[in-house]
C-alpha cells in the first residue's frame, strides 16, 4: 500500500521537519523584524502586555519549534542515507548535494544551539524564571538579543542550502 511505503514516511518526516521549521523561523523573524524594533515605540505602560504575555508564549513555540526541526531533520537525513556524508560536509564524496545539505545542517545546528543554550537561558533571566541581579539580567538580555540577530543572519544561508539542495 503506497500510503505506508518508505517513500511516504520520508515525505511525512520532511513535512514534520518543514512544519517545525516554519514555527521556529517564523517566530525568530517575528522577534527580529517585528517585536524588537517595535518595543521602543510602545508606551511604557503597555509594554508588559508584550513582555509578560506574548513573549513567554512566543518563546515556547520558538524553542520547541527549533527542537522539532532538528530532530525531524536528523531523522530525514538518516532516512535519505546522507546523514554521515552531510555531517562531514560531503568532503571526499564528490557530492554537491551532500555538501550543500551539510552546510545547511551545520548552520541549522549552530542556530539550534543558540536557541537552547544562549537565547533561552538569557530569556529565563529576563522573564524572572531564573533569579538574577539587574546587571545579570541586562547582560543576559543583551547576549540573547545578539544571538537572536546572529540566528537571523544565519537563517539566510541556511535556507539557501535547505531549499537550494534540490537544484543539485
Amino acid at each position: 500500500m503506497e500510503f505506508v511505503s518508505f517513500d511516504w514516511w520520508q515525505f511525512f518526516i520532511r513535512w514534520c521537519h518543514i512544519l517545525c521549521g516554519v514555527m521556529w523561523i517564523g517566530h525568530l523573524w517575528y522577534f527580529n523584524f517585528t517585536q524588537t524594533p517595535t518595543m521602543p515605540k510602545i508606551p511604557a505602560e503597555l509594554r508588559p502586555g508584550v513582555s509578560k504575555y506574548i513573549l513567554p508564549e512566543a518563546l515556547f513555540w520558538f524553542r520547541w519549534g527549533a527542537m522539532g526541526t532538528i530532530v525531524f531533520g536528523l531523522i530525514l537525513a538518516w532516512m535519505n542515507g546522507y546523514l554521515g556524508s552531510a555531517i562531514k560536509l560531503g568532503i571526499g564524496d564528490g557530492s554537491l548535494h551532500n555538501t550543500t545539505i551539510g552546510f545547511g545542517m551545520w548552520l541549522g545546528t549552530i542556530m539550534w544551539f543558540n536557541v537552547w543554550f544562549i537565547i533561552w537561558p538569557g530569556q529565563k533571566k529576563n522573564l524572572g524564571i531564573v533569579q538574577a541581579t539587574p546587571d545579570e539580567v541586562k547582560k543576559a538580555t543583551r547576549t540573547a538579543g545578539l544571538a537572536s540577530r546572529v540566528n537571523t543572519m544565519l537563517s539566510i544561508p541556511m535556507l539557501y542550502c535547505m531549499a537550494g539542495v534540490h537544484v543539485y
Partner: peptide, 30 residues
C-alpha cells in the same frame, strides 16, 4: 564601534554576504 547586528538592515546584508561565501565554499569543497 556600534555592533552591526544592532541594525536589522546590516544583519540581512551580512546574511546575504554569508550566503555568497557559503555558496563559494560549497563549490570549492564538492
Amino acid at each position: 564601534m556600534k555592533n552591526p547586528l544592532d541594525s536589522l538592515g546590516q544583519t540581512i546584508t551580512l546574511g546575504v554576504v554569508l550566503t555568497v561565501v557559503v555558496v563559494l565554499l560549497i563549490h570549492a569543497i564538492a
